[in-house]
């Protein structure tokens, strides 16, 4: 049984791996990096949705905090989606400089975002939702990305 904190933190590492694979591929040949980009983008989008559609909702319902940390995290997800989109169009345009400019920015934004989640939000969520932890992890696992 994994806790919400463990499950989502592990998923961060998975996204980091896919991010590194994608950058590695782009640095070698941006023309054939579309697949790696799609893998990363899909995994990240799934992670966002696991949080936004399951964990954040449960957390907000339980704590009544809708304008607190989850609102901030949603906002940062939006910032990251925007950068990922820019990276996608850079790959389509075969523009390496534009790609790495955006990927570098995304990397730092993503890491400090992850840190805030792992240091603060996840422990808070785990504390408030410990009784329903397994159910929430199962729901997140089962989510179909929209």
């Amino acid at each position: 049984m994994s806790t919400i904190k463990e499950y989502l933190s592990t998923d961060h590492r998975r996204c980091d791996e896919l991010f590194a694979n994608m950058e590695d591929k782009v640095s070698k040949s941006i023309e054939s990096a579309k697949e790696e980009f799609e893998l990363f983008a899909a995994a990240t989008e799934k992670h966002f949705q696991m949080e936004e559609r399951v964990m954040f909702v449960e957390f907000e319902q339980k704590t009544g905090m809708t304008q607190g940390p989850t609102a901030m995290m949603r906002h940062e997800h939006a910032q990251m989606r925007n950068l990922i989109q820019e990276m996608g169009s850079a790959i389509d345009a075969k523009d390496k400089d534009k790609f790495f400019g955006n990927s570098e920015t995304l990397m730092i934004l993503m890491q400090q975002h992850n840190m805030k989640e792992e240091q603060m939000l996840y422990p808070m969520a785990q504390q408030h939702l410990s009784a329903e932890s397994q159910r929430i992890v199962d729901m997140m696992q089962a989510i179909v990305v929209e």
């Binding site: 949705q49 936004e52 559609r53 909702v57 949603r74 906002h75 997800h77 939006a78 910032q79 989606r81 925007n82 929209e146």
Partner: peptide, 12 residues
Amino acid sequence: FDMSMYSMKIEG
């Protein structure tokens, strides 16, 4: 200010 950025899929 690009408001489309904030039209997140909050509910499924």
